[in-house]
Design a protein around this nucleic acid. Sequence first.
DNA 1: ATATATTTTTAGACAAGTCTAAAAATATAT
DNA 2: ATATATTTTTAGACTTGTCTAAAAATATAT
Lengths: 217, 217
Amino acid sequence: MLSQSEENYLKEIYALEELASKEVSTNAIAEKMNTKASSVTDMIQKLSQKGLVVYKKYQGSKLSKKGREQAVAIVRKHRLWETFLVNKLDFLWDEVHEIAEQLEHVSSETLIDRLDAYLGHPEFDPHGDPIPKPNGDVVKMQNKCLTDMDVNHSGVLVEVKNSEKAFLKYLNKRNIAIGDHIKVTEIESFDNSMKIHIKEKELVISEEIAKNLYLNT
Amino acid sequence: MLSQSEENYLKEIYALEELASKEVSTNAIAEKMNTKASSVTDMIQKLSQKGLVVYKKYQGSKLSKKGREQAVAIVRKHRLWETFLVNKLDFLWDEVHEIAEQLEHVSSETLIDRLDAYLGHPEFDPHGDPIPKPNGDVVKMQNKCLTDMDVNHSGVLVEVKNSEKAFLKYLNKRNIAIGDHIKVTEIESFDNSMKIHIKEKELVISEEIAKNLYLNT
DNA sequence: ATATATTTTTAGACAAGTCTAAAAATATAT
DNA sequence: ATATATTTTTAGACTTGTCTAAAAATATAT
């Protein structure tokens, strides 16, 4: 049985690994979790002791097989609860994160299986993130050009294909940056412009812009 | 903001007060919560400090107005979640307690209001207990124990006072459930066993069983 | 390559909640 | 009414998860 805190660490390490696909640094975890590096070191050592994390002093951490399984299970719960909140209780998809953070720690296999069935075994949560299967399978995220994405799908901005001053200036002005979570909310078929949700705001961008943005989805 | 532990204490003190309608003893709380009397003393003093409990050394504790409000809010959450689990996720009414014990600590006013609406503002939970209103009102039940009923009188089974596995199993086997209409058709005076009419059938139950069944008449 | 800066770990402290063992207060029984 | 039993509280310890401050390791810059 994991404590809530242990679960949160596993979940965040998982998220960071997905982004970087290499060992995650103590500082990175500390920042993500709003805590101090020394606290992270303490917890990492405990998780390492328990065989959930592979850790070598000063070299960062990564999840073990066992740790990854646990992390995925938590992500599954989080995303199913988010889906419930939006699909059944009429929350908006950007209002549900904090509540799901609490619900994800409720421990009952049966509960989560029933919830999954009740929701009709959804594949994606309201943010467009894939919901892991009960056996731990997760749809692999891959880089996709924004122009290849469908409505309601989302991803994290990981690459900008054009490095002209003007283009970068454009991104700056609109406060678009690497690492931002972007969700496609509308596509205008006649000119392929799209409406995207980014940093709590809606933005309309042309196909020309979209062509240069790559998301990890 | 109350900790989970504080919430649990308030909830259990509330339950004990409802039963006894007087100050509850440290030992009674300890037994109910599966903890030691010394731990209870510690917590009681803390809750008293916070103005949630009225406490005088060696004289037992009772909830303050503020503490009672908090306790009722937790009971409301607990019972709404139980209703959700049974009505929407098809749990049996005797399977939901442990899960609801976890869910009741999820903190979000909006969540619980939406859940309430989603369930159609139910008045009773699957065990027949009244669900407190958002403002804290709780329907006072004029429940009667089956042993206090006369021949030919009837009511709806609303509460089961014993939650041991064996007892619940007994009820399941005989297909006796909360919400059933029960009529007393015969009382055997020498052992106080009774014949009851339930779901189109006649059943004989011992006084021992009858003691644990409460009807809303 | 050496000094400087940054990151990470350690050491020691603290708060919450629990426990055991012993002391203090209250209740019970003769 | 006094001795005995029970209940409750206190004192001190332990665990979990956090923190600050200082030390150690690693990275960076000139």
